[in-house]
């Protein structure tokens, strides 16, 4: 609806608001917008999650398939990401949509496809030959700023929801045969203890905000993507966007992101556990 260029007056209003710790919607600089998360709504997948916020709607589906391991890591499984932003509702993205989604995909791969995040060794079936490959696909239905953070939260929720079927290896006359079990009790859960969420910290004026709206992103003079896990450790750092940052600024931004990530990770985990316990019928898109 609104154009991507903001007038000077509006930008100044936003910058001054941030300086006074009162953003356009009344949030403080380290507050995240409320979001709703629902898992297990796509039955064709091994795990799925949907994150909804006003103006943002992201659906993540995880499919586990047996495949070849990567050359440099022949004893572990791996993750493959794909972000699909094809809806016209994301037309306010600057530049070519394909480049934008590739950038998101690569950022996610860099952060999540690592032994330090998930126990990828447990995804090995036959060392060096057959491993579980997790294809994590994110479909962006709507976007209103802070897309990467939303995708990362949905990815973490989808990983929590993922169940890998049990595989038995039968050695028949020297030929190894794999049998995938249909029994739900054989399914494996993934441990998400070390899985981080991405907190993007934007520098607006002299202060830093997290969970920036589209208008706030237009006023940002520098952005730092920080991946923070449940133990409040930093898993990854990436500076993006135009504008340069002072080293001291980077330290301050990291602190801001860590402060903001604590309630975020806690609330997410509580919601996921509560959802798992309640076993309600999934509303999916029929919910209000």
């Amino acid at each position: 609806m609104s154009s991507s260029t903001l007038s000077e007056g509006r930008k100044q209003f936003i910058v001054d608001g941030v300086t006074q710790d009162c953003r356009a919607d009344g949030r403080r600089c380290i507050d995240f917008r409320r979001f709703q998360i629902e898992t297990g709504i796509v039955s064709n997948t091994n795990g799925s999650a949907r994150l909804r916020q006003y103006g943002t709607d992201v659906l993540v589906g995880i499919k586990a398939e047996i495949g070849q391991p990567k050359q440099e890591r022949s004893n572990t499984g791996h993750l493959e990401f794909y972000v699909d932003c094809s809806s016209y509702n994301t037309t306010e993205i600057d530049g070519h949509i394909g480049d934008f989604t590739t950038q998101l995909t690569k950022s996610l791969e860099r952060i999540y496809d690592s032994e330090n995040v998930l126990d990828l060794k447990s995804l090995t079936i036959i060392a060096g030959e057959q491993v579980w490959v997790l294809y994590i696909d994110a479909v962006v239905l709507e976007c209103c700023g802070n897309l990467l953070d939303c995708i990362s939260i949905a990815v973490k929720a989808a990983l929590y929801n993922t169940r890998i079927p049990g595989v038995s290896v039968n050695d028949e006359e020297g030929v190894l045969e794999l049998e995938i079990s249909d029994d739900p009790n054989d399914e494996k859960k993934l441990s998400i203890d070390k899985v981080p969420v991405i907190v993007s910290c934007n520098k607006i004026g002299h202060r830093y905000v997290v969970d920036a709206t589209q208008e706030e992103e237009c006023c940002s003079s520098g952005r730092l993507l920080i991946a923070v896990n449940d133990r409040n450790n930093i898993c990854s750092l990436q500076k993006s966007g135009t504008g340069s940052l002072d080293p001291s600024t980077i330290f301050e931004m990291i602190e801001t992101a860590r402060q903001a990530a604590v309630p975020l990770n806690q609330e997410l985990l509580q919601t996921l556990k509560r959802e798992e316990r309640s076993n309600n019928d999934k509303c999916g898109f029929f919910a209000n």
């Binding site: 007056g9 100044q12 001054d16 608001g17 006074q20 009162c22 356009a24 009344g26 006003y54």
Partner: peptide, 26 residues
């Protein structure tokens, strides 16, 4: 002018109104 002279109190009122309008619209 573009120079700011909006106090925090006024900003909170504006933010509150914004949230109320969006809630009504939803």
């Amino acid at each position: 002018t573009t120079k700011s002279d909006t106090s925090t109190l006024e900003r909170e009122i504006v933010a509150r109104l914004r949230n109320c309008i969006m809630a009504l619209a939803e």
